[in-house]
């Protein structure tokens, strides 16, 4: 179980997270949703120790993650942007990460699934964005991790690769792994996620199952339900932003 307590983070004047509490049960697929700049990636990066929170704690497996690094040997992370050392070959990149992690890996079936085998000897700088994203996906899933953190995993993938990705995610969940992902593609959420965390303005607006979200706004379609939240909030948001300025006057 991942437990996040009162997480706060600001970048300069920009308060990205304003006290976020999250519980993520083991073996679940959780989708983190929210408009651009709502702090989705920041939460994922704090989980990984890439961003240091101003306040609050992250517990995973009953242990505080802050200041530690060994806990990451059970986490697979798929970042949003895939960039690799330009002059290395695809094969060398895989062996580099294997060399760093020193864990048993299952590379071969993934290479076939994403049809990367013919590219193994290519230089990384010659590859297209979509191909790099596929390589990134393979790097994430090649180790037997307990937790997979995916930041917009579908970005840049072609439909065939997308189907492969969905299958891999479903398979990992059957194996009892925890998956946490952000996306803007609601059909993916509806199909895969058991839990939804909806972030708005640095706070959690909604946390619960897909069914609960649908019930809440009387919409069967997740996309519509989310759009409803945003519409309603835009009206309230106007009032919200007026109030503090009035009080400071």
């Amino acid at each position: 179980m991942i437990k996040i307590n009162n997480l706060c983070k600001s970048f300069g004047k920009n308060h990205v997270l304003k006290g976020v509490d999250i519980l993520i049960p083991e073996g679940n697929i959780t989708a983190v949703l929210g408009p651009n700049g709502s702090g989705k990636t920041t939460i994922l990066k704090i989980l990984l120790g890439l961003v240091k929170p101003d306040k609050g704690n992250v517990f995973w497996k009953q242990r505080i993650t802050h200041g530690d690094y060994s806990y990451r040997n059970k986490i697979g992370y798929l970042p949003q942007i895939a960039r690799f050392p330009e002059n290395l070959r695809v094969r060398e990149l895989f062996s580099m990460i294997q060399d760093i992690r020193q864990q048993p890996s299952d590379l071969e079936p993934l290479l076939d699934a994403f049809k990367l085998r013919p590219l193994l000897n290519d230089r990384l700088r010659h590859l297209s964005g979509g191909t790099r994203q596929k390589i990134n996906t393979v790097l994430t899933f090649m180790f037997d991790n307990d937790l997979f953190i995916l930041d917009e995993p579908t970005a840049g993938l072609d439909p065939v690769a997308m189907i492969q990705l969905r299958e891999i995610i479903a398979r990992k969940q059957k194996e009892g792994k925890t998956i946490l992902f952000t996306t803007h593609i609601m059909s993916l959420v509806q199909e895969m996620a058991q839990q939804i965390i909806f972030l708005l303005d640095g706070r959690i607006y909604f946390q619960g199952s897909v069914q609960e979200l649908q019930k809440l706004h009387g919409e069967h379609n997740v996309e519509r339900a989310i759009a409803r939240i945003l519409e309603v909030n835009e009206h309230e948001g106007v009032l919200d932003s007026v109030q503090p300025t009035a009080s400071t006057l």
């Binding site: 690094y69 992370y77 970042p79 050392p85 992690r101 790097l139």
Partner: peptide, 17 residues
Amino acid sequence: YNTRDFAELLLAQPIQR
């Protein structure tokens, strides 16, 4: 600057900064 994004990937591995 060129390796910054890749450094992010490395930092997500179980090694120290």
